[in-house]
């Protein structure tokens, strides 16, 4: 090939690259605020410095007692029921040995070892899932809630490897195939295949002044409040009772406390 034509092609290619990357830089600026109006917090939203949950497990007799909570949660968020190992869990039950594997001993009292224990996302103060997410699809809100933006999730499942509590579920398939039509809660979206999801501490309910669905259904047996407010219900309950958290040695600082 002719030498000068060759260098011409090289320079042309480089310029095209430079120009196109310049254009992408400009479109990046176009992402700045587009709306002519302004934004504000919702009017009657509940707010806290650090949301936390205290589950008084003494007041739940057996797994049946938790059923209305699970149903309320799954109905409110259109959580599908998928049989098998590719299932979705937001609020679920398991045995003591599985929930608190580090605190297990063979001679545990009957009530503790036979009971079902409720599980949900711990909304850690130091969440590993947020640390590993490559797109900030999962992130920590100022009020301590570990939230998710399903629009941004690429489905790499790094967060599932990172979460020490098994709180995250991946949509291996289209969840709508496993939901009724119309969906249980038409005011709330479903998810799509290929994204990760989990409990959100009902951020959408807090925003309109409602307590989380499970807390409401628990009728006082689950407390929800501001951990940084010494006068809050959760702080009072924690001060008055012995409570534990899951896998505290990992330093994640879970926001879900169990009174046992």
């Amino acid at each position: 090939m002719n030498k000068s034509r060759r260098s011409f092609l090289k320079i042309a290619g480089l310029s095209a690259f430079a120009l196109s990357s310049g254009i992408t830089g400009l479109t990046g600026e176009a992402h700045a605020k587009i709306a002519p109006g302004s934004y504000a917090h919702g009017g009657n939203a509940l707010s806290a410095k650090r949301w936390a949950m205290v589950i008084d497990t003494r007041k739940f007799k057996d797994s049946q007692d938790y059923e209305p909570l699970i149903e309320a949660c799954h109905k409110a968020h259109n959580v599908p029921h998928i049989p098998g190992r590719q299932n979705i869990k937001w609020f679920w039950l398991d045995s003591y040995a599985h929930v608190f594997p580090d605190d297990m001993n063979a001679h545990l009292d009957e009530r503790t070892s036979a009971a079902s224990w409720p599980l949900l996302c711990n909304h850690c103060t130091n969440p590993p899932c947020v640390r590993v997410c490559p797109t900030q699809a999962t992130y920590k809100m100022e009020d301590g809630i570990v939230a998710m933006d399903y629009h941004r999730c690429i489905g790499c499942r790094f967060c599932m490897a990172g979460c020490p509590y098994g709180a995250r579920s991946f949509n291996f398939m289209d969840p709508r195939a496993h939901l009724t039509n119309p969906v249980p809660n038409p005011d709330f979206p479903t998810r799509m295949a290929g994204v990760v999801e989990k409990c959100t501490f009902c951020a959408e309910r807090l925003a309109v002044g409602q307590l989380p669905a499970c807390v409401e259904a628990a009728k006082g047996r689950i407390l929800f409040g501001d951990l940084e407010d010494p006068a809050s219900e959760v702080r009072k309950a924690l001060a008055a009772n012995y409570s534990i958290r899951r896998k505290p040695s990992l330093g994640t600082q879970p926001g879900v406390y169990y009174i046992i």
Partner: peptide, 21 residues
């Protein structure tokens, strides 16, 4: 674009109200 902005404001900044012009 407005919907994208709404999503980010609501989900990330807890700004769940929009005051139009």
């Amino acid at each position: 674009r407005l919907l994208n902005e709404w999503r980010d404001e609501a989900l990330r900044n807890e700004n769940r109200a929009y005051i139009a012009s």
